[in-house]
């Protein structure tokens, strides 16, 4: 059956995947950049200042809605792809050497994405939910040296639990593999493939996939180990 509409053809789904993916990548840049403020190691003053800005600025708050919409689009689109792609091969091979022609993470974007989504739910529960006063609030954590609400203190508390730290590191691993395929793939999906620039795109993709997750993983780890106080 021909597919019509917003998620119409296989290619339109592909474009949505690429566009939302690149959008989420741009969010990761902002998110990692701001969270990296904890590495000033100033008791969270700089970090809390930025967190306050992000939590109160109208444009940012609007973008948050767009971000969630983008995320949901990315997830729903991904689920549709996964379901249709499974259905496209009703009988599987008895014996297949997939590794001979492709990377496991390229074939596992659905699973990696699901892991990231699970991680994201935990992550949102830890930080976003209380900081937006949906369930609980940041009140118990008082204010920091500059007198702002202390999201930083919440981080310190959450990352004092080794199980949580491990979950976060695993989440970052999933993100790494997901990005390693996703970054490059988004360019290909939008038709941006040129022999002259492919190497550059691939390099950027690999670099991004390593730097961002490492940066993220460094946060719980360094807090747990007490490097950041």
């Amino acid at each position: 059956m021909a597919r019509q509409g917003l998620f119409g053809s296989s290619l339109i789904k592909k474009y949505w995947m690429a566009l939302t993916g690149l959008f989420l990548i741009s969010f990761l840049v902002a998110h990692a950049g701001i969270n990296a403020m904890i590495f000033f190691n100033d008791g969270g003053v700089t970090f809390n200042e930025w967190a306050h800005f992000m939590g109160t600025n109208l444009i940012i708050r609007t973008m948050e809605i767009v971000l969630f919409a983008g995320l949901i689009l990315h997830v729903v689109d991904g689920l549709m792809l996964w379901r249709q792609n499974r259905a496209a091969r009703p009988v599987d091979y008895a014996f297949a050497k997939h590794n001979a022609n492709s990377k496991w993470y390229s074939r596992s974007m659905g699973i990696l994405g699901t892991l990231i989504l699970l991680f994201l739910i935990i992550h949102l529960w830890h930080f976003w939910v209380p900081s937006r006063n949906i369930v609980g609030s940041l009140e118990p954590y008082g204010s920091d040296a500059a007198g702002r609400e202390n999201l930083f203190a919440l981080m310190i508390e959450v990352f004092s639990n080794p199980v949580v730290v491990i979950v976060y590191v695993l989440g970052c691993f999933s993100l790494f593999w997901h990005l390693l395929h996703g970054f490059k793939s988004a360019f290909q999906s939008l038709g941006l493939n040129h022999r002259k620039y492919n190497g550059f795109i691939a390099f950027c993709g690999a670099a991004f996939s390593i730097i961002v997750p490492v940066l993220f993983a460094a946060m719980p780890v360094s807090m747990y180990l007490g490097w950041i106080k």
Partner: peptide
């Protein structure tokens, strides 16, 4: 192509 029931390309490259 879509009507025939082929899957969607996800740039796996196989």
């Amino acid at each position: 192509m879509d009507t025939e029931g082929f899957g969607n390309c996800t740039n796996i490259g196989a």
